[in-house]
Write a protein that binds this DNA or RNA. Structure first.
Lengths: 341, 341
DNA sequence: TTGAAAGCGTTACCAT
DNA sequence: ATGGTAACGCTTTCAA
C-alpha cells in the first residue's frame, strides 16, 4: 500500500479522523458535513485510496478470518472426499457473511496449537480427531472462540462440539450385516487414524454393537500395506464383512481386493464411512454410513460465527453444547449375504 | 492476545527489543548475552508468550498469506473437479514453504478487485477467466505480485500467465473426432463461461481447428437449461459430437442425454475438458482434453512465491513470461464413430 | 552488548 | 460538528 488515510486527509484539507468516519460510514457520535464528506470521497477516489485491511485488523483486533484445522490436509478430490465436504460446509457458512477462510500449514500438519491465539483469526474450526491432552488444554485456553468437530462428548469440556453418533451408526451397520447373515466382522483402519480418538471410538462402537447383537467380537485390521488383504485371495477369509473407518480407506480396500482377485461383495462385504459422492463411483458402489459431514461443518461454522459475534458485541456467551448427529446407513452394492461354503 | 512482548521484557528485566531479537533469532547487528537470552526465553515460557502475528505482519508488511481468486467458487467435490485441482496444486506449493492459503469471498464472488492490494496478502493467484478491462488494469497496478491462470497471451501485458494451449488442444480433439468419422461438431458451454475470455478462446480454437481440418463450422450450444439437449431425443441430431467447455459441463450433458434417452457414444459423442479423475467415474467414461491444471497451479504458485521473495529481498524482478501448457487428449468411452443412417 | 524511541495505518477518545 | 492525539504490538534504527 502506498497512499494512506493521512494522504487523503491532507488532500481534502481535513483530519484523518474525518476520513476514517466517512470511509467507514458509521462513526459513533461523530458527524461530518455533507460538503466535507463529498470532498473526502473525491480525494479518496483521486488518490485511489485503498484502506489497509491489515492496519485496520491490527487496530480493531478483528480480522474477518476463520481458520480450519485438519490433522493432515492432503489432496482434495474424489478419492479423498472428507476434506472437500468439510470445506464446502465451512465456505457455505463463511462466505455469505464476508469471512475469509484460511488454511494455515502450521495448524494443518505440524500441529503447533499455540498459534490458535496469535491474532490472525477471529475463530478456529478444529477438525483434528487427535485429542492429545496438550491440544485440548490449548484449545480450552484459547483467547478466541474454537469449535470442535468429531470430539466425543466429554473429551473437551467447555468446548462446543459437533460429532457424529458413532455408536448409533455402528449399531445400524451391525444390524444390516447381521440381517444379511454375517457373523464374523472386522474393522479396517489405517495406521494414522487408529491412533486418533475418533478411530478408537468407532472401533469400540463396532465392538459394542456386535456384542449387543450377539455376534463374536470383531477383529481389528490395521492396514499399513496390502499384506493383510492379500491373504484374502489365498486362504479362507476369517471374516465375511469389513467395516472401514472412512470412504477413503474403503476405496483403498476395494482396489486392493480387486487386485488380489477377491470379489466384493461375493467373497467379502465392505462398508464405508461418510457416504460421500465417492461411494457412487466405486465398483461395486459402496455401502456406507451416512455421516452428514457437510451439514455438520456448516452448523459448526455457523455456531463459531455466533460465538465470534458474541465476543465482539460483548454479549453473554452461549452455553456450551455438544451436538450429536444421527447417522443413517446408505446401502449400495458392496454388501450382500456371505458366501455359503 | 493478552501477554505482549513488553510483559516478557519486564519479567526478564530487559528491553522489548532484546525479547524481539531473541524470539526471532536474527537481529542484524545486535547480540544478546547467553544469560539474558536464557532469562528471556524462560520468562516467555512462563508467561506463555505468543507473538502477535497480526502486529508483526503490520510492522513488517508481510503477512505470509496468499489468496486464490476464483470467478465463482461453489462446491468442492467430484462433480466439480476444477477447483479441487487448482487448490491441490496451490497447497502443494504453499504449505511446505509455510504460507497460508486464503479464500476470500470478496475476491471470490462479487469480484471487487481493489482488494488485491489491501495489505492482507503477499501475493495473489488470479484464476478468474473473465478479463474485463477494469480487472486487468487493477491487476497490473497491484502493489503485490499477481500471477494469472488461463489468460491467453497478450491479454494482460506485464502479468505472468500460466495457460493451456487451447488451440493445440482443439486440434487434437478435431483430429480424434474426424478420425472417427465425425463431421458436424458442436461446442457446448454454459451461460456463465461463454462470457469469459477462456470460453471465447476455446470456441474460436475449435472453429479454427475444424476449418483447418476441412470440416463444416461447428455450432455453438449455450446450455442454460435442458431444452436444447431434449431435442436430441426427438429429432435427428444436427451434430454427431459435442465438445464441452469443461468436465463439469460434460457431466451435466451426459446426465441430461441419459435422461432424454440419448445414448452416448452411440447417438452422439461427448468430449470434456480437464481430464480430471471425474472422467473415470462417469458412464460411459469421459473422453477429455488433458489440461494439466494441478501442475499449472503448482507452477504458477511457485512462480508467485518467487516473485514475492524478490520483492521482499529487493532483488531484481524476474522477466515476465507466459507459460503455455501442451494438452493431450485422453480417449475414453464417450467417443466413438457416428451412427450411420 | 543493550536500551530508548520512532514509527507502520488505523480507529477511538477527548478536547474544542 | 470537527480536529488533535494516543494508542494497538511489534521491529528496527540509532545512540550509548
Amino acid at each position: 500500500m502506498r497512499t494512506t488515510i493521512r494522504d487523503v486527509a491532507e488532500r481534502a484539507g481535513v483530519s484523518a479522523m474525518a476520513v476514517s468516519v466517512v470511509i467507514n460510514g458509521a462513526g459513533q457520535n461523530v458527524t461530518i458535513s455533507q460538503e466535507k464528506a463529498e470532498r473526502i470521497r473525491r480525494a479518496a477516489r483521486e488518490l485511489r485510496y485503498q484502506p489497509n485491511h491489515l492496519a485496520r485488523s491490527f487496530r480493531t483486533q478483528k480480522t474477518g478470518q476463520v481458520a480450519v484445522v485438519f490433522q493432515h490436509l492432503g489432496r482434495l478430490g474424489q478419492e479423498h472426499p472428507y476434506h472437500s465436504l468439510i470445506l464446502n460446509g465451512v465456505m457455505e457458512a463463511l462466505f455469505p457473511r464476508g469471512y475469509t477462510l484460511s488454511l494455515c500449514p502450521r495448524m494443518v500438519n505440524a500441529g503447533e496449537p499455540g498459534f490458535i491465539s496469535d491474532g490472525r483469526f477471529d475463530g478456529v474450526l478444529w477438525c483434528r480427531p487427535d485429542f492429545t491432552e496438550a491440544s485440548v488444554e490449548e484449545i480450552q485456553e484459547a483467547t478466541i472462540p474454537v469449535v470442535m468437530m468429531h470430539a466425543p462428548p466429554g473429551m473437551a469440556p467447555g468446548v462446543p462440539t459437533f460429532c457424529a453418533d458413532n455408536e448409533g451408526a455402528m449399531c445400524r451397520v451391525v444390524d444390516h450385516l447381521k440381517g444379511l447373515g454375517h457373523e464374523r466382522l472386522a474393522f479396517a483402519i489405517d495406521l494414522w487414524s487408529v491412533k486418533t480418538v475418533e478411530g478408537q471410538v468407532r472401533w469400540k462402537a463396532l465392538t459394542d454393537a456386535a456384542a449387543q447383537a450377539g455376534l463374536p467380537s470383531p477383529d481389528l485390521l490395521i492396514l499399513g500395506d496390502h499384506g493383510i488383504l492379500a491373504r484374502y485371495g489365498e486362504v479362507a477369509a476369517p471374516h465375511t464383512a469389513l467395516v472401514c473407518f472412512s470412504d477413503e480407506l474403503a476405496g483403498f480396500v476395494l482396489g486392493s481386493l480387486e487386485r488380489f482377485g477377491v470379489s466384493v461383495p461375493r467373497d467379502v462385504s465392505v462398508v464405508g464411512f461418510d457416504s460421500s459422492a465417492f461411494c457412487d463411483s466405486t465398483r461395486p458402489r459402496l455401502t456406507s454410513v451416512n455421516q452428514p459431514v457437510e451439514h455438520m461443518a456448516f452448523a459448526a461454522t455457523t455456531h463459531l460465527l455466533t460465538l465470534i459475534h458474541e465476543v465482539e458485541a460483548g454479549l453473554p456467551k452461549s452455553p456450551v453444547a455438544s451436538s450429536i448427529y444421527d447417522c443413517g446407513l446408505d446401502v449400495r452394492e458392496s454388501t450382500a449375504p456371505p458366501r455359503t461354503h
